[in-house]
Design a binder for these strands. Structure first.
Lengths: 174, 174
DNA sequence: CAGTTTGTTCAATTTAAATTGAACAAACTT
DNA sequence: AAGTTTGTTCAATTTAAATTGAACAAACTG
């Protein structure tokens, strides 16, 4: 059945969400913000997490009162992170989305994509700073040079320790 | 103009920072942003980290070209987190600040103040949602009720696992 | 074919957060 | 005493990020 017009008229308002679902939308919205994701991204996940069946982009847009532009970018981010997946419903042309419930996966992907990347950036930038120090040696007093060198060495050491620590963390979450 | 001091004329421009220091200011500024702290907070820490001696608020303000309001709020945050400390220099009236170099401490405090608090909030909010579900049971179809209940149970389970996991994490960073 | 619907992209707008700067109090100096 | 300097607070402003909405392309329908 190709979405029979009698059953689900296209323009009709969907029935309002139960309070539990609204509340979880809010919880995930705030959580997203705390993790410096756009609130709307968290809300979309929160909506899908308690959805009895996959939801289309227009449905999400209406349920959360957010624009389809935001739904499009939000779902893209969530797909990239592996927090939701696309499901191909019957003969439908629309994309349907459902939440990935195995939150363990999520943590893993998020870790790889966010934490690991940031750690690598930090490492690279620290190397750059150390290079600058070498370049600038002549212009610095011996005392200041020594002090900066020692402190950068501390940072590098810490960075190395963090790096060693990562595989352990990986084992714990994988 | 009463500006006395032969040695350190009050209004004088401090000599410009060496490039290494500017670069580290930038590195910590960006890092702060990534961790959703104000950039200026990271910059202050980056400045102090390579400072040969403690710096006063006005010095920080001038070196980073940020207002004294920002220096005041920024140093307060860093003090609270244990990232910097006040030092009482000679007879001076001004506050002087220096970076806490033992970054291990920092990680610990940050963990306690940020991660732990957030975990507790998340726990409380999840309980609230579960309560709402109970309240709303009558208004939901049995199928939907069961589904939501099961999914909230999943979340609670995850939350419990995360909680158990925390002491382990604590041992690792402490 | 023209007309819908879906979904993406991006410029314009809105919103939230950081930053400034002015007002003020406190601790000094002359 | 009056005048400096330091540091805090908070309302006003600036800045950065999220969101919208319009333009567009793609995939369909009658």
């Amino acid at each position: 059945m190709a979405i029979a017009a009698q059953e689900i008229p296209e323009g009709a308002k969907l029935k309002p969400l139960p309070r539990v679902r609204l509340e979880l939308v809010d919880v995930f919205g705030r959580m997203a913000q705390a993790l410096s994701f756009p609130r709307s991204v968290g809300e979309i996940y929160g909506l899908l997490y308690l959805a009895p069946k996959p939801m289309s982009a227009p449905e999400i847009s209406e349920a959360l009162s957010i624009s389809k532009g935001s739904v499009s970018t939000g779902t893209r981010q969530l797909l990239t992170l592996g927090f939701i997946r696309k499901v191909w419903l019957q003969e439908e042309r629309k994309d349907y989305f459902e939440a990935v419930l195995e939150l363990g996966n999520m943590v893993r992907t998020a870790y790889d994509q966010i934490f690991k990347v940031r750690a690598q950036n930090a490492e690279r930038r620290l190397t750059d700073v150390t290079d600058t120090l070498a370049d600038e040696k002549a212009e610095l007093s011996p005392g200041e040079y020594a002090l900066i060198k020692e402190r950068l060495a501390r940072l590098t050491k810490l960075q190395k320790r963090a790096k060693q620590f990562m595989p352990l963390l990986e084992r714990l979450i994988k």
